[in-house]
C-alpha cells in the first residue's frame, strides 16, 4: 500500500472525482438536515489548520520547567492540557516520558491515530504501511532512517495509539538548557521528538 497519490483522481476534463462529489453531497445533506452549517465546517478546517507541533512544544517546555505540571501531565495528560486551555476533543492523552535510559516512540499500526490536538495532522510517513509495519519490529532501524542513533543500552518502548487514546512523547530535556526560559526551550522541541523518531534539539 502506498499513500503517494493523495489528490483523488479527477473526473473527465478535470471535474470532481467520485469521492469529492460524495463529500460535497454528504456535507450538503447534513447541512440541509441542520446538523451543522457550512460556516461550522469552515471553522473546523481553520481550527485544524491552526493546530501545529508548536502546541505540543509549549506543553513539553512547560513540563520541563515546572515539576508540578510535569507530574500532572504524566498522571493525566488530557486534564493537564485542558488545564492550560488546550481543547483535547474526545480522545484521551497519555504522555510517556523519555530519558537517558528509556526512549519512547509512537505509532498507530492499525490506522493513523495521532495526538492531533497537540501536533496537528500527522506527517504522511506516519500513515505509511512501511512505518506502521516496521517500527514495532525494528524501531532502532527505523529511527536510524530518521537520523536518530540510540546507544545500545537505551531501552526503546513503542506505543501503539488507538482510536480513543493517543500517546505523545515527552522528550528528554537536552543538556545545557538549565538557564533557558520556556519560550527558548519550546524552540528545541521538534515534532519528530514528540513522536519519538527524533530527539529534542540541543542549543
Amino acid at each position: 500500500m502506498t499513500d503517494h497519490n493523495h489528490a483523488p483522481p479527477r473526473g473527465p476534463n478535470g471535474g470532481l472525482s467520485h469521492y469529492q462529489t460524495m463529500e460535497l453531497a454528504v456535507s450538503e445533506l447534513l447541512i440541509e438536515k441542520g446538523l451543522f452549517s457550512e460556516q461550522k465546517l469552515q471553522g473546523e478546517i481553520a481550527a485544524m489548520d491552526a493546530r501545529s507541533p508548536e502546541t505540543g512544544a509549549r506543553v513539553v517546555a512547560l513540563a520541563w520547567s515546572d515539576a508540578a505540571f510535569k507530574a500532572r501531565l504524566l498522571d493525566d495528560g488530557t486534564a493537564a492540557c485542558e488545564s492550560i486551555g488546550i481543547d483535547m476533543g474526545p480522545t484521551r492523552l497519555v504522555v510517556v516520558e523519555s530519558s537517558a535510559a528509556i526512549h519512547n516512540v509512537i505509532v498507530c499500526t492499525l490506522c493513523s491515530c495521532y495526538p492531533r490536538m497537540l501536533l496537528g495532522l500527522p506527517p504522511d510517513w506516519y500513515k505509511t504501511a512501511n512505518y506502521r509495519s516496521r517500527v514495532v519490529r525494528e524501531p532502532r532501524a527505523v529511527l536510524r532512517e530518521f537520523g536518530t542513533e540510540l546507544p545500545d543500552d537505551v531501552v526503546v518502548r513503542v506505543h501503539d495509539n488507538t482510536a480513543d487514546m493517543r500517546y505523545m512523547v515527552l522528550p528528554a530535556r537536552p543538556k545545557g538548557t538549565e538557564s533557558m526560559d520556556r519560550e527558548a526551550l519550546a524552540k528545541l522541541v521538534t515534532r519528530d521528538s514528540m513522536i519519538g523518531v527524533g530527539l529534542a534539539m540541543t542549543p
Partner: peptide, 9 residues
C-alpha cells in the same frame, strides 16, 4: 504491525 516492509518514504 510487525510485517516486513521497506524503508519509510
Amino acid at each position: 504491525g510487525g510485517r516486513p516492509a521497506g524503508p519509510v518514504d
